[in-house]
């Protein structure tokens, strides 16, 4: 079972959360996106039990939600005229 994609996804997701906590939002956004891409690959191409798929999809939804918020925040920040 090529679990390396799953492991990669998990690594990326935990790095994303770390960067998020450190307020490196650009990096966190990039890592969340990469993590979801790997998770999606695993769900689509690597046979997992339905239960595992459901929980991976739920994780993706969470990360995507967070990534969208970061993206909004970064866009707003960019627009904000330099103080």
């Amino acid at each position: 079972m090529a679990n390396n994609n799953l492991q990669k996804a998990i690594d990326l997701a935990s790095k994303a959360a770390q960067e998020d906590k450190n307020q490196n939002y650009e990096e966190a956004l990039r890592l969340y996106q990469a993590a979801v891409q790997y998770f999606l690959h695993v769900v689509k191409y690597e046979a997992q039990g339905d239960k595992a798929k459901q929980s991976i999809r739920a994780k993706c939804a969470e990360y995507l939600d967070r990534a969208e918020k970061l993206k909004e925040y970064l866009k707003k920040k960019e627009k904000a005229p330099p103080a």
């Binding site: 891409q37 999809r57 939804a61």
Partner: peptide, 23 residues
């Protein structure tokens, strides 16, 4: 309360991912 757990579909994930990537 809207059950958050209604799991998202692969297509929906893919769509959101694309939306994110597009600047």
């Amino acid at each position: 309360s809207s059950s958050k757990q209604a799991t998202i579909s692969d297509d929906e994930i893919e769509r959101q991912l694309r939306a994110l990537g597009v600047d």
